[in-house]
């Protein structure tokens, strides 16, 4: 059985191979974007406005005559970068808060949890819109907003498994040594919950991509003329009713392929973890 270098054993199935392939493809494209695209994604060509898919422009061109394929490829970078950075923030801080709240139940943990629950009750997209409007749209703002908004969810998940782990007697044995609480959390508990954290990170990444795209669709993320999936859909969605589907369809397909692949991988790791 082939094993991935993850804290959980993972059987490689055909579905998982396809999903992993799609994710790796987008990762590759986002890194080498400019080097592999056939056209300059920013080059405006008045002569080639709204060309349907053809041999020269495989995904067609948009209202300014820019090559959709090149823009989708280069546009993957901002989405992946923002969502990965946001997920990293959410997972690291969520894990810290979760470890704390799970291992030190008490007044402070309760207060923390109530605040988290209050945040979780609000709709994420609405909240991030307000935050981005208040702070001004930029990649950094979007990263911070999504990252912080996801901390409560991660913290609650991590807390739940820490609660279970800390009842196990290997933790009691470490307390008897006596080991300091921080050492117990990092050395003893953390390795045993890493599987859950991997699952949670994958799930969060999927959601982060979705919200990043949503925010830029609403004009609150990456600013034009930088190519970005959500932004591309926003710029051209009015044309769909006129039968000009390609400037919207291909970025939408890109978002869907990435989000669905990541979700399926997350679901598979989760099932293995159990």
């Amino acid at each position: 059985m082939l094993r991935l270098p993850l804290p959980v054993p993972l059987k490689i199935s055909p579905l998982l191979m396809i999903c992993g392939g799609i994710v790796l493809f987008w990762a590759f494209v986002s890194i080498f974007g400019e080097m592999i695209v056939p056209h300059n994604p920013l080059a405006i060509s008045v002569m080639e406005r709204l060309q349907p898919p053809s041999a020269k422009h495989i995904f067609g061109t948009d209202a300014l005559g820019r090559d959709v394929l090149s823009r989708v490829f280069v546009g993957s970078r901002s989405v992946l970068f923002i969502s990965l950075a946001a997920t990293t923030i959410a997972i690291s801080w969520g894990t810290i808060f979760g470890l704390y709240a799970g291992y030190f139940p008490g007044y402070l943990s309760d207060v923390l949890l109530r605040i988290f629950e209050a945040f979780m009750a609000l709709p994420v997209v609405l909240l991030s819109m307000v935050a981005v409007v208040a702070l001004g749209p930029s990649s950094i703002t979007v990263i911070l907003v999504i990252g912080i908004l996801f901390i409560p969810v991660v913290a609650k998940t991590v807390r739940a498994v820490v609660l279970g782990e800390s009842k196990r007697t290997y933790v009691a044995a470490a307390r008897l040594l006596p080991e300091r609480p921080l050492v117990i959390l990092v050395r003893e508990v953390l390795p045993n919950i890493s599987g859950t954290i991997v699952v949670e990170a994958t799930v969060r990444l999927g959601y982060a991509i979705f919200i990043t795209a949503t925010l830029s669709f609403l004009g609150l993320g990456v600013q034009p003329p930088t190519p970005d999936w959500g932004l591309m859909i926003y710029e051209s969605f009015g044309l769909v009713s006129a039968g000009i589907w390609w400037p919207v369809f291909f970025p939408a397909l890109a978002i869907a392929s990435l989000v669905i692949s990541i979700s399926l991988i997350a679901e598979r790791i989760f099932r293995n973890e159990r």
């Binding site: 007697t169 009691a172 044995a173 470490a174 008897l176 040594l177 006596p178 003893e188 045993n192």
Partner: peptide, 17 residues
């Protein structure tokens, strides 16, 4: 604290896997 130690009933639970 270190002078008193304990052996638990279920060793698969008391040893960190």
């Amino acid at each position: 604290a270190g002078a008193i130690q304990m052996v638990f009933q279920d060793p698969s639970d008391s040893l960190n896997p």
